[in-house]
Simulated scan of single mutants.
Amino acid sequence: MNQNTHAGGVRKGPLAYAKQAALAEWGTLFAVVRDQLVRKRFAAVPLAMTATLLILLFSIVQHLPGGDRFVTHIGVVKAALPLDVSLLRTPLSLYVPALDLPVWGALAQVFLVFGVAEIVLGRRLMLVIAYVCTLAGTLFARFGVELGPDHLFGFPRWVAYVRDTGPSAAVVALAVCVAFRCRAYWTGGTVIAVMVGEAVVLPNLAGLEHVVALLSAVLIAVSVEVFGDFWPRVLAGVGAAASVGAEARRAGAIAR
């Protein structure tokens, strides 16, 4: 709360500073998301709802008799699989929850982060980031197995048979891209620091894949920021030039 000073002014208290910092960090994000949800409600996040329902569906199916085999054949990726099979399964592998983690955690993460990303980034860019960053982690696992355990970024051969599924890589990647778009740099930096710290303290396949997904997300976010409006402007210029040329040719034909 605010306090009066001896000079008659008002000195801000810790709560006021915290409120100001939160507004500066999340004000834009909150305003954009609130506006869309107020106007459209759940119609603003159809992809996030679909992704959440798919995770719930796969979680139920893989615990039914014969369901685990079905889910494995359509959505489970391992580094030991042929590359073409991995590429075909990767899109669905986002929605196959890990067996050793509570499914409610994946459901909450996906609904929240995918929903915010769908509103802030747009559906097309959200899908691109989620798929590309997940694929980057999947390919890194294959690369690490090929390098072998003697290399800094290598893995032992048994890692090739580890089930590599779940939306976590896409979630952290989308969180960073949303933070970058809304200029919530402290939030994005915190996500990156936590993921890198996890990979250092508890080195495993998932942790390193998260770091690779984050690097991919940063590259995408920077590219969109720098070149996002470049090609639309080029195409608009080409269209305007073609229109002017057509008008000039039509005027010349009439003059003749």
Rank of each mutant, 00 (worst) to 15 (best):
K19A: 13
K19G: 10
Q20E: 12
A21G: 02
L23Q: 10
L23N: 09
L23A: 07
A24H: 05
A24Q: 13
G27L: 08
G27E: 14
L29S: 14
A31C: 03
V33E: 11
K40P: 00
K40D: 07
F42S: 07
F42K: 04
A43R: 11
A44E: 12
P46V: 01
M49V: 15
T50S: 14
A51L: 07
A51D: 02
L53A: 14
L53C: 12
L54R: 09
L56D: 04
L56C: 12
L56M: 13
L56F: 11
L57R: 06
I60E: 05
Q62M: 15
H63Q: 12
L64A: 14
L64S: 08
G67W: 00
G67D: 08
D68S: 11
D68I: 05
D68Y: 13
V71N: 03
H73G: 14
I74D: 10
I74N: 09
G75T: 02
V76L: 14
K78P: 05
A79V: 03
A79D: 07
A79M: 04
L81V: 01
L81K: 09
P82S: 05
V85C: 02
V85I: 12
L88Q: 06
T90C: 08
L92Q: 07
S93N: 09
P97H: 07
P97V: 06
P97R: 08
D100F: 01
P102E: 08
V103H: 01
W104F: 13
G105Q: 03
L107F: 10
L112M: 12
G115T: 06
V116N: 01
A117N: 03
A117W: 01
E118G: 05
L125E: 08
M126C: 12
I129N: 02
A130M: 08
Y131C: 02
V132N: 01
V132D: 06
C133T: 15
G137Y: 05
T138I: 14
F140K: 03
R142T: 11
F143G: 00
G144R: 07
E146F: 11
G148I: 08
